[in-house]
């Protein structure tokens, strides 16, 4: 079964070429990678038809480890490359994996427009609330009042809620999970891939090495316990007051709507153009 670690290792990882990986011990990215592989394996999509593209940062290193068609692009731009690939070969399953800074700071414009455009791409955003690879500077999701190497006096900006941003921008499917709630995460990623249209899975993860050490979460286990205590299911949150939800975030499916995907719409354009003569 795909749940078995050796199957993941032998069938899906470039274990003979690319390991050891660059991530810190205890990093949530390994959990994300495992979840991503289990979700895709369960759908039985041939590896030749899988594309995994990334931008820059710790998360950006993930594609090199997986035996798909993989692409490590420029900072924030992964979705634009994925757009070109999907349009040129719609039969491929295109996934884009980004960090919070990658997707919502430098790549924020590409992110909202990809959601609006509704091309059939699955965007996975690993949100660890910081720029991990460069040492812990504040990102668009760093909480107000917390510390970063560029905010040692306390952070004065307010954080994006990535999943809510994706809903507003028009994504067809939006889910949020954490690296603590792994079974749910496998399910969300699988649903995202199956969805026709643009899907977004925000994953709350831990950078105990950089964000954590400045914010009393230096231990990865303690960090995961923080996720467990602060995550509330979408269903439960609907019955809670604003005050009760103040320091919480929701997990589950935030949006699942049906509208024509870009590929279907563009085929209509082709049909119209072909009928219009020269």
């Amino acid at each position: 079964m795909v749940e078995h670690a050796s199957v993941i290792r032998n069938d899906f990882l470039r274990h003979d070429m690319q390991f050891p990986h660059v991530w810190c011990p205890g990093c949530g990215l390994g959990i994300v990678l495992g979840s991503l592989i289990r979700a895709t394996a369960k759908l039985e999509i041939p590896k030749d038809d899988m594309v995994l593209a990334s931008g820059i940062g710790c998360t950006g290193r993930m594609p090199a480890y997986v035996d798909f068609n993989t692409l490590h692009t420029t900072h924030g731009r992964a979705l634009t490359f994925s757009t070109g690939i999907k349009l040129a070969k719609p039969e491929l399953t295109v996934m884009t994996i980004m960090g919070d800074g990658d997707a919502t700071a430098i790549g924020g414009n590409h992110f909202i427009h990809a959601a609006r455009r509704n091309l059939n791409i699955t965007a996975i955003i690993v949100n660890n609330q910081t720029y991990g690879m460069t040492g812990g500077q504040y990102s668009p999701t760093t909480p107000y009042g917390s510390k970063a190497t560029t905010a040692m006096y306390g952070h004065i900006e307010h954080a994006f809620s990535i999943a809510e941003l994706a809903v507003t921008a028009g994504a067809s499917f939006v889910g949020r999970g954490t690296v603590h709630h792994v079974t749910q995460l496998d399910d969300l990623i699988g649903k995202g891939i199956r969805k026709r249209g643009f899907s977004v899975i925000e994953i709350i993860s831990n950078c105990h090495t950089n964000y954590g050490k400045m914010n009393n979460l230096a231990d990865p286990v303690a960090y995961q316990m923080w996720m467990k205590e602060h995550a509330v299911s979408v269903k439960k949150a609907a019955k809670m007051s604003v005050e009760e939800l103040e320091d919480k975030f929701t997990i589950g499916i935030l949006a699942d709507i049906d509208k024509p995907s870009y590929i279907e719409e563009y085929q209509k354009i082709r049909d119209k153009a072909a009928g219009a003569g020269s």
Binding site: T83, A88, H113, R270, A273
Partner: peptide
Amino acid sequence: PKQNGTFIQMEDEIASIGAIIGASLAGAKV
């Protein structure tokens, strides 16, 4: 679109060249 090709207007020039690189990697002349 008349000849089964693809045109897309992107959100900026950064995205435009990103998209053509992706399409070229997938085999298209861009």
